[in-house]
């Protein structure tokens, strides 16, 4: 410290005696300034709030309203009654949740090792493999779905190849059913699981696994007791994204399901296309929305349980 600044400090100390010990000077002005800044911060979220209101709340409110409008025009529960009257509705809901659940499961089984592999790769290779994982994002959904059709159908590439190689005698039914739907869905959904999972895995300190094995855990044991629990938040996040996206899927089950895998979205389309019945379609949408929120709520509860187990991390 230079001499001059030391002197300044001394001077300040001397003049400081003029101020009272507790000062109310500027107290109000300072408090106001803080308030103003908080409002400014809040106002930054305003565009987002407007967008949410316009894009989510109003349409969803409209959906609810429409679902209670009967064909005659007035308030009616007929759209919901119809869902009980015909068994197809319960079945399509079952199918929708079944497809979503199985797709999520397949994504986990395929995506976990893939994300693990990516997380272990040295930096320069990650970019390349990540590109391979993300590439499907840049291809049209329809193109990817039809590509599977070309591969999987009765006279498709896989059946042709296998029959030529003598792997099986007559074509195996790989598409136009649940199998094909799940293959196509899993392919499209995989990146949605891998990305958050990869992120979670990347955050796991290498020392964690070293510590586990140093303390006597075999690689398998170390994986199940340390790595797996630490990657779980990423897996749950990814699985939720996949599951919820699957619930509303339309194109892939329509093309690869061969009309046998009827999802709620398929049924909504059928009702709209054939009956122009907004009310009935809205009611289906409302039930799907509520079912989805229910799943999210339950998952949230489970997650909170996890948070309690894991601490804040």
């Amino acid at each position: 410290m230079s001499k001059t600044s030391a002197e300044t400090v001394v001077e300040n100390n001397q003049t400081g005696n003029q101020f009272p010990a507790v000062s109310d000077d500027n107290r109000v002005a300072l408090a106001e300034q803080e308030k103003r800044e908080q409002w400014k911060l809040l106002s930054l979220t305003f565009p987002a709030l407007v967008v949410i209101a316009l894009v989510i709340l109003i349409p969803v409110g409209w959906l609810f309203y429409l679902s209670f409008i009967g064909k005659a025009g007035g308030f009616s529960l007929e759209n919901y009654q119809k869902m009980i009257e015909y068994k197809s509705y319960a079945r399509t809901f079952t199918t929708t949740f079944q497809v979503s659940f199985l797709t999520t499961l397949i994504c986990i089984l395929l995506g976990y090792p893939l994300a693990y592999f990516l997380a272990q790769l040295p930096g320069r290779w990650v970019g390349f493999f990540m590109l391979a994982v993300l590439l499907p994002f840049w291809t049209s959904l329809l193109v990817r779905t039809y590509a599977w059709l070309v591969l999987l159908q009765r006279k498709g590439i896989i059946n042709d190849f296998a029959i030529n190689m003598g792997l099986w005698e007559s074509p195996i039914k790989l598409v136009h059913n649940m199998t094909g739907t799940l293959i196509g869905m899993a392919h499209i959904m995989l990146p949605f699981l891998v990305l958050p999972l990869y992120n979670a895995m990347k955050k796991i300190d290498r020392d964690m696994m070293h510590a586990a094995s140093n303390l006597g855990a075999s690689p398998a044991r170390a994986f199940w007791t340390v790595y797996m629990p630490l990657s779980l938040p990423g897996m749950v996040a990814g699985s939720l994204i996949v599951f919820v996206l699957c619930l509303g899927f339309y194109v892939t089950p329509a093309v690869l399901g061969g009309g046998r895998v009827i999802m709620v979205s398929t049924q909504i389309t059928a009702i709209l296309e054939n009956q122009f019945n907004w009310g009935a379609a809205s009611a289906l949408g409302v039930v799907l929305l509520i079912a989805t929120l229910l799943v999210l709520f339950i998952a949230g509860r489970v997650l909170k349980l996890d948070a309690a187990l894991f601490g804040k991390s």
């Binding site: 020392d207 070293h210 510590a211 586990a212 094995s213 006597g216 690689p219």
Partner: peptide
């Protein structure tokens, strides 16, 4: 010998405590 059979204790720089 693989690390988990060496029976040595180790304190890591990052501590490597299991957060879960």
């Amino acid at each position: 010998t693989p690390p988990h059979k060496r029976e040595v204790g180790m304190v890591f720089q990052s501590y490597a405590l299991f957060p879960h």
